[in-house]
Amino acid sequence: MNWQLLPQFLVSGLLSGGPIALIGLGIVLIFKASYIFNFAQGQMLLIGALLTWWLAVEVGLPLWLAILMALLISAVLGLVIERLALRPMTGQPLLAIILMTLALGQVLQGLALLLFGSTQRNFPQIFEAANPYRIVTPFVYNDRNITIILKQNLVWSFVIAVLGVVVIGGFYRFTRTGLAMRGTSEDHELAQSIGIRINRIFAISWALAGLVATTAGVLMATSSGLDLSLSVLVLAAFPAVLLGGLESIPGVLVGGLLIGMSQGLVSASKVQLVRNSAEIMPYVILMLVLLIRPEGLFGQRRIERI
């Protein structure tokens, strides 16, 4: 263990957990409403980021307008996906629904490749790259205080991600639509019988998921560049969702941050093999969660047991 590097890696790992949580939020939103686990979230995120890039760089809109437009388009895309692909699947067995979202991911991936190609794009920088934040910690190593250097985009994407989770959480907690969404997630038939139009709730969830995906996509593109591998990075979000508990919005934040931190923790190791394990760390945690506590940290103990 490189002790002098540990604080740095822990903090930057924690911060990188923010976007992971935001991606997970999109998955949780859809799952809460319709019990569909969206494997295509990564590709939705990719499409959102590519759209933003296209509007800002190729079309030449100002960045804020490009992001706004991309958010709008991806919300509509979410609606379209729900209507065309997932609505016909209502009441189908689990396998069909899982395969539908996987197929959706393939189609979106194909579309992204077809329209935008697979070259690495330079995403417009939103935050100053040259001027990182420095935090001096009280820990002393070699007679010097350990300084943590944080890139601005890492810090700000963390802040925005947390803000996103809080806003969506507040929307669920305090608005009328949010109440209807919570009701729907409890029981579809019951919700219908008291006059909630659950089709509309599903549609809203998918639109929100599209919004969240694009936000996460833009944040991840600013910190790790924009190409097709973006949809692979997203795979770290699935374990985060399960760790937090599938139905829990605060849980996804905690799960995302823990996953990010665990990746940071192993990156600080002196052993090459342990350092390399950062990429599968989420999945190792996933296996542990499944074996020890399948409902996750904050999930409801409702999963089907055998």
Partner: peptide, 8 residues
């Protein structure tokens, strides 16, 4: 591009 598109 076409492979995932067609298959999906």
């Amino acid at each position: 591009a076409l492979r995932p598109l067609f298959f999906g």
